[in-house]
Every structure is written in structure tokens, then in C-alpha cells.
């Protein structure tokens, strides 16, 4: 199994008022091609900083980020632009992640424009295909973000990420802000896209219940540190770390069959 992404001793520190507060503390992790690795933890545990460091949206203090063998931290110019096409991101809040002053067509086309992938008429056709691929009519291109529902906006954010043909997608709480029904549809879409496009996912979430449906493996973070990383089934049946057990305990215990299983889930 070859790792598409490998984090080695990644450390991210924020300059707080009088001291350096570590957001990510010496984290090492590998993600294999084609898998979905879930990175979970309470808010403030540093999981979002990991995603942003991988994408070079923030500067780590130490460690290396190897993408397909190359260190992302030292990439410059064309090499960095090539990496930007291979690794993409979908954020949590679809209200905030789309520029409210741009039409959907322009938003989805932005990556194509930045990398000058194709001339305008062809790009517009491509946008129409992308919108259809994420389950939206091509006519959505003419609308503005505020004219779309939350679920539609998240599909648009996915289409924008797919426009540059990435192989690695960071889903940063990508379904947390969605209503349960819409969440299920978007998860379904992500699964379809993954098998069709051979995508590798880093699925950042705070909710283990969502992760259980999608992840191959789960990595649990607590206060900046990686406390456990195990195949999903194993993590759910035999959690090793206290932080994992706390997250499992937080899943609402729905009384499915009261007579048969009593309190257990």
C-alpha cells in the first residue's frame, strides 16, 4: 500500500499573547491512495489546523508533509500550482465558502481559470458537466449562492473542488452544517464520486456517528495530539483512548429495540 499523503512530526503553533500554543503537536499520519481517513476530535483539538497545513493555508512550525513523496512545505511556483490541482478542499459552512457576489458558474470555473486549463467556451461546458455530476441542473450556473439551498451550495463547493481534477480531497466538516437528510444525500454523492474518480479523502469531523458510515480508518485527535488511529470497525468495537471513548459516548443512544438490547447501541 503506497501512501499518497504522509505527515511526519507535524507541529503547528499559534502565537498566543504571551506563549506559543500548539494547535497540532508532533502528529504523524499516513493516508493511502483511495481510502477515506477520518480525522475526528472535539472542536479546538487541532484537526482543522492539520487540514489547513496540508493545503499550505497556514505555516506549520515543524515537521514535513509529503504528498506523493514530495514535501509540500518546500514547494514553490509551478510545483506548488501543480499540487494545488491535485489536492482540494470542501469547507464546513457552504454559506461562507462561496463568494456571495459571484455566480455559481464563475465559482465553479475559478480553478479552471486560475490554471488556464481550457478556453472559455469549453470551460463553460465543463462547468455544466461538473454541476450535473454533483446532481445539479446545468442552469444552476446562472444563479447566485443566496438563491441556492444549503445542500445545493455544498454540492457547488464539491463541483468547484472537482473542476481541477484533484486526486485528494479534504472534507473539513463538509456535512456538519447540513440537515440529516441532506447530509445523507451529500455523503452518498461523495461515495459515488470517490469510486468513479478514484479519490482519496481526508474526512475531518467531530461526529463519530457520521464517520462510521464513510471512513476506512479513523484517527482521533485530542489537544493537538494523535491519540488513536485504527480501522473504523475496530475503533468502534474496541476504542483504546479515553478521548475516543468520550466521542463514542457522545453519540445519541437511540432506543432502537428496547426489549432486545436495553441500553446498549
Amino acid at each position: 500500500m503506497t501512501a499518497l499523503l504522509e505527515l511526519r512530526h507535524l507541529t503547528v503553533e499559534y502565537a498566543a499573547r504571551d506563549r506559543r500554543a500548539p494547535a497540532v503537536d508532533d502528529l504523524s499520519l499516513a493516508i493511502s491512495r483511495g481510502e477515506t481517513l477520518a480525522l475526528v476530535g472535539e472542536s479546538g483539538c487541532g484537526k482543522t489546523s492539520v487540514g489547513r497545513a496540508i493545503l499550505r493555508l497556514l505555516e506549520p512550525t515543524a515537521g514535513s508533509i509529503l504528498f506523493d513523496g514530495e514535501d509540500v512545505r518546500t514547494m514553490r511556483g509551478d510545483v506548488l500550482q501543480r499540487f494545488r490541482r491535485r489536492a482540494q478542499v470542501v469547507f464546513q459552512d457552504p454559506n461562507a465558502s462561496l463568494d456571495p457576489r459571484m455566480r455559481i458558474g464563475e465559482i465553479v470555473r475559478e480553478g479552471i481559470d486560475i490554471h488556464a486549463l481550457m478556453p472559455r467556451p469549453k470551460a463553460e461546458l465543463r462547468v455544466a458537466h461538473l454541476l450535473e455530476e454533483v446532481g445539479l441542473p446545468a442552469s444552476t450556473a446562472a444563479r447566485f449562492p443566496h438563491e441556492c439551498s444549503g445542500g445545493e451550495r455544498q454540492r457547488i463547493a464539491i463541483a468547484r473542488a472537482l473542476a481541477v481534477e484533484p486526486e485528494f480531497l479534504i472534507l473539513d466538516e463538509a456535512v456538519s452544517a447540513l440537515d440529516v437528510l441532506v447530509r445523507q444525500q451529500v455523503l452518498q454523492l461523495l461515495a459515488t464520486l470517490q469510486s468513479r474518480r478514484k479519490l482519496t479523502y481526508l474526512f475531518i469531523a467531530h461526529d463519530l456517528a457520521v464517520v462510521e458510515r464513510v471512513a476506512t480508518r479513523v484517527a482521533v485527535m485530542h489537544r493537538g495530539r494523535l491519540v488513536e488511529c485504527a480501522p473504523t470497525r475496530q475503533l468502534f468495537s474496541a476504542p483504546a483512548a479515553d478521548a475516543t471513548r468520550a466521542l463514542l459516548a457522545a453519540i445519541p443512544r437511540i432506543p432502537w429495540e428496547t426489549r432486545a438490547s436495553g441500553e446498549g447501541r
Partner: peptide, 24 residues
């Protein structure tokens, strides 16, 4: 997030200023 998304797509500073920030 929308500016972060543009940066992740590889948008230059100039593009971010003219396309996103100034209109905002």
C-alpha cells in the same frame, strides 16, 4: 472560507484582491 478556497485553488494575491476582496 471563500478566500481560503480560492487560495487552495492556487489563486494569486492579485486575483484574490481584484476578484474577491475589492468587490466584497
Amino acid at each position: 472560507d471563500y478566500v481560503l478556497a480560492a487560495r487552495a485553488l492556487g489563486a494569486s494575491r492579485r486575483r484574490i484582491i481584484w476578484r474577491h476582496l475589492l468587490p466584497a
